[in-house]
Amino acid sequence: MAAVLKIGDSELDIRALLEQLQQHQLLPRLVQEVVLDQSIESVACDPEEAYKTFCLQRNLVSEQQQQAWQTQHKLTQEQMYMMALRDAKIAKFKEDTWGNQAESYFLERKIKLDRVLYSLIRTKDPSLAQELYFRLNDDGGSFADLARRYSEGQEAQTGGLIGPVELSVPHPMIGRMLSVSQPEQLWSPTPIGEWYVITRLEKFVPAQFDDSMRQRMIDELFKTWLQETTQSTAVQPLLP
């Protein structure tokens, strides 16, 4: 069987190339790209506008910068144009397919997208955790000072302060506590695994459905569709 690809000193025929794709877990990525190419085949875009957008996104303002990028990525000008057109088609395909679902999907996901700034102290000593809670709650102790001195995690370096982070980021139990907290609400020591955790909500930052969030929701819907479609696509080697 004739070689179809040479890499260094290695020449690969069709069978060897397929074996390499499978061995290195690259076949699913190839299937994904083929599925995507088939899906955007009929999408219409202006090639010149696509190229302009492609260059602007990469800050390739001058012709010299464009040629340097082309050389760096070992592409011909035609290949660069085709890459730009493909990007534009994918963007239009995502907008046309999921643009009208973005807001409802955001509302479904909002509880996990809201962000919180919170303070945390964790220790493996339940007696110490209780003492620290009393010092915070009854004596008005400084959370930052006590966290720097006693907390056993990386949060000690920031005086216990974490965030703002989305509510999906902390441990699920901490996330649930923070989601029903009022600012400055202090929670008594809570056992989570090997730790005893004291938390206090500092600030709640609700997620906003702005342009950036809308695009993120579209991208998430697209990614889910692409994964599901790729997994359900039949792949059959056609070798003699």
Rank of each mutant, 00 (worst) to 15 (best):
H171R: 02
Q57C: 08
L27C: 12
L132Q: 01
L186R: 00
A102I: 12
G153H: 12
I7G: 01
Q67F: 15
I192W: 04
T229F: 07
G160L: 00
T199F: 08
V31Q: 04
D37W: 00
S179A: 14
P164C: 04
G99L: 07
S142K: 06
W98Y: 13
D87N: 12
L36F: 03
S119N: 13
E19L: 13
I174V: 11
L26F: 13
A207R: 03
V34S: 01
L120K: 12
E194F: 09
E155V: 11
P240M: 13
G99N: 06
D37E: 07
I7K: 08
L60M: 13
A84K: 05
E152F: 01
F143P: 13
E41I: 07
G141I: 00
H73I: 10
L21K: 08
I14T: 09
Y51I: 15
I218T: 05
N137M: 09
Y81L: 08
E11I: 06
L18Y: 08
V180D: 00
A16P: 05
L239C: 08
I162K: 01
R200G: 08
R200M: 08
L85P: 00
R149W: 03
W187S: 05
Q79L: 11
A44L: 09
R200I: 05
C55H: 13
Y105P: 01
W187A: 06
E131M: 06
T123K: 06
D210C: 05
I90G: 10
T230D: 10
A147M: 15
Q32N: 14
N137Y: 10
G141M: 10
I111C: 12
S181Y: 02
S127C: 01
L12H: 05
T71L: 15
Y51F: 15
I218M: 05
